[in-house]
Design a protein around this nucleic acid. Structure first.
Lengths: 238, 238
DNA sequence: TTATATTGTGTATAAAGTACACACAATAAA
DNA sequence: TTTATTGTGTGTACTTTATACACAATATAA
């Protein structure tokens, strides 16, 4: 035990919790929102699925820690990341008190390969998840709630689509986010009239992406500047 | 130095940051939203104003830590608390790397008295703040953004009002939150028609609270159950 | 050709947001 | 007593947005 103790070389005057950073990474396969999970190689919860993540290291921010662990474990480098919540129940980790600050990210068309602490890395449809380790089921619910709240006004969601996308694509994204069918025609009208006023989405004349579909849909691209300008104007409206 | 080192009795195998919990506490004086600040008694930022807060202790959650420190420093016990964000820039504290998880709270008609580490505790109108310590100005901006986002659908904001309130009261609260005048007549119409459909606010027959005002306004009370029911139904609507 | 699936457009109606006129009651000043 | 001021309640006209649903256009498959 002496040898074990001598390895404990980081000493502080007051108690400190271990600090982890986890990442709920989403992608959209054109039909379903998916989330990236890794199967744990070690105890606790060995063999269970969990969000990629790990312990914070000196000199980095929590977000850097979350992205570093994500890349180490799965190779994924998301286009967008933002903080979701922190988890700090004293017994959430059976080993000792570990607080976790959780981020959510959007990645586009990325595959995942298991490295490091991860036995497997896999994308799951968000409504077909396996059993999750720790309090990660609770985190997932928070992530879904956040997505449903922010999809209304957050430009980041366009990261999930190709740079040139169709309105049916956008509608399917929303349908998956809310797990609910939307009237495609009203959805379309909403975004086109919306666009006329705000220029948030612009038609693309020569779509580089040609899908084989019964009737060829129109392609649009997202105008980030217009979206941000729109948000600033409409901070509030009755 | 040996004596100093011997006091460092919490030893870990890996590096850990210090973990603090801070609290942005709001109240509403009937005209302005106010936020609770304490003047720092010690370095760093000695004499500057900051959000109440302090270091996490073993066996408690981050929220418990934030509320404990708030009570210790100011005596305030808020009616509502929720997580806001975490701050983890490695240099946000000049002493060493300290991450802070920040909460925001609503308190109703509470006065603050300085205790503990706080030289003074004082409520400030949110648009008349003094210079803030650490990265607390950045935190304040996040808190305001959060308030402007969630006031639309969060029952918690009624904590800021008396249990029996008037629509002009509610309008003033929103005006303060957005730092912008709203048309009181349309505001009133919005909430009364809103209420007819949802029962979120109910008229009070015999107002216990009689203000001396040119014309006595009607009093209402908040129906939390109706609000939550409304939120569940209207998760989304085009 | 015919059937089917997918996309685009249109129309009618209802609901909600916005702008603004005006009436009423209490208080203070003339 | 009259008059002005202020905070409050009601009403009206207009614009915008949401909802339900009909129907046409186009490509694929039988």
């Amino acid at each position: 035990m002496k040898g074990n103790d001598s390895e404990k070389s980081y000493c502080y005057r007051y108690w400190r919790p271990a600090v982890a950073a986890d990442n709920a990474v989403f992608r959209f396969d054109g039909k379903n929102l998916q989330i990236l999970l890794v199967r744990r190689k070690n105890d606790p919860y060995k063999g269970k699925w969990a969000f990629p993540g790990g312990f914070m290291e000196e000199g980095e921010t929590l977000q850097q820690a979350a992205l570093r662990e994500l890349k180490e474990e799965t190779g994924v480098v998301p286009e967008f990341t933002r903080e979701l919540c922190s988890q700090s129940d004293p017994h959430r980790d059976p080993r000792e008190q570990v607080i976790s600050v959780v981020f959510y990210s959007f990645a586009h068309n990325q595959t995942a390969t298991a490295n490091d602490d991860a036995a497997e890395a896999q994308w799951f449809n968000i409504y077909e998840l396996p059993e999750l380790a720790f309090d990660h089921a609770e985190i997932f619910q928070k992530a879904i709630d956040m997505i449903r709240l922010t999809i209304r006004f957050d430009p980041a969601f366009f990261c999930l689509l190709d740079s040139e996308f169709t309105l049916p694509d956008l509608c399917r994204l929303w349908s998956s986010a809310f797990n609910k069918k939307f009237d495609r025609r009203n959805f379309q009208k909403h975004w086109t009239t919306f666009s006329l006023l705000t220029n948030i989405i612009e038609p693309v004349d020569s779509p580089s992406n040609t899908k084989t579909s019964p009737r060829a849909p129109k392609f649009y691209k997202f105008n980030r500047e217009s979206y941000i300008k729109f948000r600033k104007k409409n901070r509030f409206h009755f």
